[in-house]
């Protein structure tokens, strides 16, 4: 459905050049749900704008929805839907007017698009708001309208640039549900970007991790997490026995990265669930009572940390101030 090779984009403005995307290869199969994960300024939007014919790549080539990006941009446009990060609703128009116009621009007939408005309003919780001006919608309602505009012509391939930013948990869950249904019922291929690790994790078959314009890893959420060596475990012990506990933990098979903070001992271990009972017994036999314990499976944040040496949140904080 998408096949890109060496796609790159360099921006030059006022003597400064920014390599926003540095030659990425992307393959997305029919019916796949792929997530594009990366910190602010990583090049997600730029990549999407190239794949949707909105921005000319400075290098590379791609075929999207069966049409060549450079040779047949109109063919690409016919086959895709796109929801921009910043949305695209005119404040002075009503919900129904906006959806109708978008459907008509995609070549739909008036009756077809009217029927579709009712369907989308129902699906995206916009029912009853058809006559309201976009300017009067709340941020989340407007975001759902943006999504409706991108889906109005039932495209086979949709690009969603941070579709759930600004949505409350309930609407987020609804939209996830809708995205899953698109794929399950209509075989739609979805390519979305996100900041949210849980979103990428629970929604996507496959994740591409992008940092600084390059794809640094890809795979299913689980396979990515396997790259992180083991689960993160921590135990809390009485102040006097922290050193001894750390030593015991370090003797567990495969344990590593042992560290202590106050009365907490942290370490990584391949299988946290089976290692913990063992540790409990070992501590017991030394007369150390554990007061609390925690094990968690690696998160995508851990993946990002392993891959780039920074956490996603760090990467965002260190983002230069002039990046829009």
């Amino acid at each position: 459905m998408i096949k890109a090779r060496g796609l790159a984009r360099r921006f030059s403005a006022r003597g400064r050049t920014v390599d926003a995307v540095r030659g990425v290869d992307i393959d997305v199969a029919d019916g796949e749900l792929v997530g594009f994960l990366g910190p602010n300024g990583a090049g997600k939007t730029t990549t999407l704008r190239m794949l949707t014919t909105l921005l000319r790549p400075t290098a590379g080539e791609a075929s999207v929805g069966g049409c060549d990006l450079l040779a047949d941009p109109v063919g690409v446009r016919r086959n895709i839907g796109y929801v921009a990060q910043g949305g695209g609703t005119g404040p002075g128009f009503t919900v129904a007017e906006e959806i109708e116009l978008q459907g008509r621009l995609y070549g739909m007939s008036v009756p077809a698009v009217r029927a579709r408005i009712a369907e989308l309003a129902e699906r995206l919780d916009l029912a009853g708001m058809e006559k309201r001006y976009a300017a009067t919608l709340s941020g989340g309602q407007r975001r759902r309208l943006d999504v409706a505009l991108g889906l109005v012509h039932t495209p086979r391939l949709v690009f969603l640039d941070e579709p759930t930013t600004g949505l409350d948990p309930q609407s987020r869950a609804n939209l996830w549900e809708h995205i899953r249904a698109l794929r399950a019922e209509h075989g739609v291929t979805v390519f979305l970007t996100t900041h949210y690790l849980d979103e990428a994790d629970s929604l996507c078959d496959r994740i591409l991790v992008i940092d600084n314009g390059e794809i640094v890893a890809e795979g299913s959420p689980d396979s990515l997490k396997e790259r992180v060596s083991g689960d993160a475990a921590s135990i809390v012990v009485p102040a006097g026995s922290v050193g001894a506990a750390a030593e015991i933990a370090g003797r567990l098979p495969g344990a590593h990265d042992v560290s202590t903070v106050d009365t907490t001992v942290r370490f990584r271990v391949p299988r946290g669930d089976t290692a913990m009972p063992e540790l409990l017994r070992a501590l017991d036999s030394e007369g150390i009572t554990m007061t609390a314990m925690q094990v968690h499976r690696p998160t995508l944040d851990d993946v990002f940390l392993t891959l780039t040496g920074r956490t996603l949140r760090d990467a965002e904080r260190k983002e230069p101030a002039d990046v829009a």
Partner: peptide
């Protein structure tokens, strides 16, 4: 104004 609100891009992404 249409450019800022993304309306221009939204139209440019259609086959119109």
């Amino acid at each position: 104004a249409d450019y800022r609100s993304g309306v221009v891009e939204r139209m440019r992404v259609t086959p119109a």
